[in-house]
Simulated scan of single mutants.
Amino acid sequence: GGAAPVVSALLPVPALRRQATLLDGFAAELAASCPGTTLERVPVRRWADLWSRALLLTLPGAGRTAAVSTATGRLLPLGVDLQEHATAVQAQVHAVLEPADGTAPRLVRAAVSAPKPDTVVGAGLWQLLRPRMSLLAAAGEGRSVELDAMPVTAEGDLLWDDGRARTGEPADPFATARVILSTAADPVTAPLDRHPSRIAVPVLLEGYATERADDGALALTVAGHRLAVDTDRIPAAGPLTPEAVAASGACLGLLRWDAGEFALQPLAVETTVRKKTAAVHAGAWAGGTTDKAGARAEKAATDAVAVLRERAGKLLRT
């Protein structure tokens, strides 16, 4: 499209990569929406936010590198937030860091992203991300990670380096949430990122009632307050489903703000199966799976990736 030359020129420059990715995605959305008369609804709010964000990123100082320190201690994953676009995919692991120096625990994040063809979907997305960050395997297996001088920004983003991480002991995310989450310090958000759409606060909810509307919308009632569940954010690349959320007794998720109200994005739930408590995690397949449904999806994705690589090889040889 018309944005391709600009994106190609921006991508090789690390300082401009955020702008390039945003422009690439925005241009792809606009192109896919043409002609506009075929749209059921024009996403005015989303497109306005994307355009505003793009303009802010061009301001002097917007791309300034955040202050970086180091983190040493035990990392306890809470869940994986998988975000998929037609041309890119990102997995963000939300976790609690217990510093080795005995200071208060704090909330941190670690993200990994990769470009993707639109034919790779579902469980196949993990194949694009796994080689780039070992934390995904630990999060999928429910294990802690020992960090040694891992770079971390003031906003709580770990600049992941596999050489500074070692997989540790089993760590149940629900146990972590029940024991530590309420005392973990929140990171300070950079001024440029203080937008309601960026709100994603890890929370643990228990003792709620679930209700489902005729249109399928799911909500939880907690202490007399109704909280909508954003089931659209539940990825197809994992075993978590809206039905599992509706049947759950505890939910670990991200509290978000959208369209004037708070909503919950589930990351994991606890359900009762044959009188036993079982946990279902959205990122359970991040490191691989022996689950039958997950294994089938992985195989299909592997075949699709193999075909794409073969075609790419033929193109390069011609």
Rank of each mutant, 00 (worst) to 15 (best):
A200V: 08
A3R: 05
L39P: 03
I180E: 04
R106D: 00
V44A: 08
A9C: 10
S134M: 14
P5R: 01
V44D: 15
A190C: 09
A301H: 04
L75C: 09
G63T: 02
A154G: 10
E310T: 12
R164F: 04
A9R: 13
R64I: 11
L308I: 10
A27S: 09
L255T: 04
G313P: 09
F174D: 02
G207T: 02
S197K: 11
T272C: 10
H225G: 10
E155R: 12
S248N: 06
R317L: 15
G224R: 11
R132H: 12
A301L: 02
A223H: 13
Q92G: 05
A86T: 13
Q19N: 00
T65D: 06
L192Y: 03
W47S: 02
L255G: 01
L76Q: 05
D258C: 07
R311E: 15
R311H: 10
Q92T: 08
D148H: 14
Q127G: 15
D81W: 09
A71N: 09
E261F: 12
A91S: 03
R74Y: 12
Q19S: 10
L76A: 02
R296M: 13
W51M: 13
A244Q: 01
L158P: 02
A236M: 10
E270V: 00
A306M: 15
V203G: 03
R17Q: 11
V269I: 00
E98D: 15
A209E: 14
T277K: 01
R226K: 14
T37V: 13
A48L: 13
A139Q: 06
R311G: 13
R18L: 07
A71G: 05
P202L: 01
A154I: 08
S33Q: 03
A88N: 07
T272N: 08
K299L: 15
L192S: 01
E29A: 02
A54E: 10
P131H: 03
S52H: 12
D172A: 04
V305I: 15
E243D: 11
G249R: 07
P170F: 05
D157S: 10
P173G: 00
A110P: 09
A31D: 15
V108Y: 09
R164S: 07
L59A: 11
V6N: 01
A15E: 01
G283Q: 00
S52D: 13
G102A: 03
K276L: 07
Q127H: 10
L59D: 05
V68A: 08
A154M: 06
A185W: 03
V68I: 12
G288Y: 04
S52M: 11
V96N: 05
L125D: 09
S134L: 12
G25R: 04
G238H: 11
A20F: 10
D157F: 09
H195K: 06
A213F: 15
L316P: 11
V121T: 14
D162C: 12
A139S: 03
T189S: 14
G294E: 07
G163C: 03
G260V: 06
A28L: 06
V203I: 06
S52T: 15
G61D: 00
L158N: 09
R194K: 06
F26W: 04
T21D: 13
V152Q: 03
E155I: 11
G2N: 06
D24P: 05
G224N: 07
A104H: 08
M133D: 13
G260L: 03
S182E: 05
T37C: 07
L75T: 01
T38L: 01
E310R: 15
Y208P: 06
A86C: 14
M150I: 04
Q127P: 14
L218Q: 12
A279M: 08
